[in-house]
Amino acid sequence: MSLAKTKHIDQPTVLYMDGVSVSFDGFKALNSLSLFIEPGEMRAIIGPNGAGKTTMMDVITGKTRPDEGTILFNDEHDLTRFDEAQVANMGVGRKFQKPSVIESLTVFENLEMSLKGGRSVWQALTHKLTSAKQDKIDEILSMIDLKDRLYEDAGSLSHGQKQWLEIGMLLGQEPELLLIDEPAAGMTDEETMKTAELFKELSKKHSLMVVEHDMDFIEALDCRVTVLHEGSVLAEGSLANVKNNQQVIEVYLGR
């Protein structure tokens, strides 16, 4: 693979970012960001507001083109060359901070839409609900606890339920890598813990990148933590490690 040659490390990665920079009107949102995630890894990303977390997600998912830098998916796809839909179909799923479900479709229809495959116009026009697909939906439903609201408009769900539905839609896509933006925002403590459990379960099959502010949640995730600051990586390691990092303390507490 010629693309792999552009990598500076040898081990296999599901996501590899090297020297990625983005600027908006002179403001550097990402400043030579380098970061990699191994297959099956769960990674938490923290950082103060404006550290570039959302921009990083935008760059990975093809929403924003970086000014420079390399982004590889599974060591073979150069993600900077594809748009959102193509990146999604390669196996990168993204959950937004604000729950983003299709409010005027039912829970069922939302999930049905998310199921892997059948993305072309013609396939969509001639789509039929097979029993395999029905089973998959049932499986997801049991994970996200929305069975009894199956035929209600997604718009009528509570905030937390919408978050869960969106996670369910992400699962329907069967992505290799999940990018999750502040899943615990607006959730009750109980829901937060349940979500953390779910993610740990998911990390057995998928790679995850979770952006979060909630330290309890990150503690519950029990995974490697990367701290972003001003568009690049400030520190990386276990949560306990990172917490004791002098630079991190400065950034979070102010000097």
Binding site: A85, A88, N89, S100, S104, E112, M113, A124, Q173
Partner: peptide
Amino acid sequence: TSKLGRVLVAIRDSESRARFLGYRV
């Protein structure tokens, strides 16, 4: 009434969600 119709509604309500689901809007 086909799935295509539901994709259309998805595009209407939240175009970026449809894209991130992998649909070429």
